[in-house]
Design a protein around this nucleic acid. Structure first.
Lengths: 257, 257
DNA sequence: CGGCAAATTGAAGTATTTCAACGTCGGTGG
DNA sequence: CCACCGACGTTGAAATACTTCAATTTGCCG
């Protein structure tokens, strides 16, 4: 197992990773303290309210960052993919749990040692800062997305975000002559928790987008996006549908009547 | 003006501020490069998509962090209060504008000089990191709040958040024998943009909470919270109302019928 | 007092939730 | 091999909540 994770660990320091750009020396120090881990879908990485002993960096798979509410409902506030870091650095409080949405591989760095390294390696410190700023922007993008009143708009926004943000994860996409095939990496239930609604509404939204011709549902977890631009235009409160023009006609009729 | 801001500037480095905890030496350096600013409600501090030349720290008043959508709608993704920092450090992209929600005073630090100081002052670097981690958590709390399907739940959540997060701003609160009086620091319109809805719905939600006895509307911008706990319990999909028990009765009747 | 902006209210239209039922797929055990 | 089960996705219909548009009220300012 270690022999397999060893080489993949390097992914953690390359490409779009949070840790790309750190010096070789720092990288070596990180590698020395890295504890490879592997979990199955559904397992909990960090329990809510618990101070984790390590900081992690995702190698493969998807983690969900979520909060369990008093009434038992769960809400997902973010997805972590290859190259994303998680776990609290220093004492920054955070009451979210981290669970595996799919089978997952990640590196665990003992928190104390990581923080010590952080103090001595400005490049790592800088990389972490940029990573967190990036996370902050992502969170805010989610907020804008959640502000959409129509579920189908939120779903369209999610799919567009998937294309733009997770574009680096080849495994999820496949360019086809008739569009872009996307693997939706999480279940309908998780998608509902993410978009603040129920699975039934998610299902209806998918089929509504299909009816509009923007997407084609190949499998529950595979979608063919015919036109990303069209999808993006659904992100705003669109209504540029037939309905809007119909409304305009009715309005003018009422005025003249 | 400067004579007035001079002393207030110290607030920026004390109490709950992002910059509390930095060494006196670093503080002096900051003070040396500080450019006090003052703006009226409605003015724009940083335009969307524009690279600001400075990093700011709020002294008084409230700024709103928002995004203007393609269709002209605006959505607020965060509020900045005393001690909060804003503006991009390094090149972290961010497409949000910053506007004054109320009259506002803040310090502006030239970005280049601030970044240079950051490289030489680990304490400032650390403080900034913690500040951003804090912002990240706040953003995620907003997401959870926005996931509520009932507007009244979102509003209740907002009021509770106001109590807990902005508690340090004395000006906004007053403890009374019959409850806690809160000054709602932003307009109904902004509140609507923040909670992802319209002013009419906000108004109805306020009055619904009043009917339930959780709050009393003293003025449009002053609310008496009778019982914070009761309000907090509305944050979840509550329904523990009369309606829920009524439903149970009806259900059992239907089963036995 | 008139004008204006913000807040509120009503009524009709629209979207989502809820509850319940059905279909599909993959695994299990007879 | 096939029946059964459970997890997951889908669909329908009624209940509920929100949005929209329009009208009205309130409070503030000149």
């Amino acid at each position: 197992m270690t022999s397999e994770i060893g080489p993949t660990f390097r992914r953690c320091h390359s490409g779009s990773s949070a840790l790309s750009g750190v010096r070789a020396e720092t990288r070596a120090a990180l590698e020395a303290m890295c504890r490879p881990r592997r979990l199955c879908a559904g397992q909990t990485v960090i329990h809510e309210g618990e101070t984790s002993d390590y900081v992690g960096c995702v190698l493969s798979g998807i983690l969900r960052l979520q909060k369990t509410l008093a009434d038992g409902r769960q809400h997902i506030v973010g997805l972590l993919v290859e190259g994303d870091m998680f776990g609290r650095v220093f004492d920054a409080a955070s009451d979210f749990s981290v669970e595996a949405a799919t089978d997952v591989e990640f590196c665990a760095f003992p928190r104390g040692r990581f923080e010590t390294l952080l103090s001595h390696a400005p490049d790592l410190d800088r990389a972490l800062l940029l990573n967190i700023l990036n996370e902050l922007d992502r969170a805010r993008d989610w907020m804008v997305l959640l502000s959409n009143r129509k579920i189908s708009s939120r779903l369209a926004g999610f799919l567009v975000l998937l294309c733009s943000r997770f574009a680096s994860i080849d495994r999820l996409f496949e360019l086809r002559p008739d569009g872009l095939e996307i693997r939706v990496p999480i279940s309908r239930t998780d998608l509902a928790h993410l978009l603040g609604t129920r699975t039934e509404s998610i299902s209806r939204a998918f089929h509504w987008l299909e009816d509009k011709g923007d997407i084609e549902i190949l499998d529950p977890d595979r979608v063919l996006v015919r036109d990303v631009a069209a999808l993006a235009s659904r992100t705003g409160d669109d209504e540029t549908d037939e309905i809007a023009s119909l409304k305009a006609v009715l309005a003018s009729r009422r005025t003249s009547g």
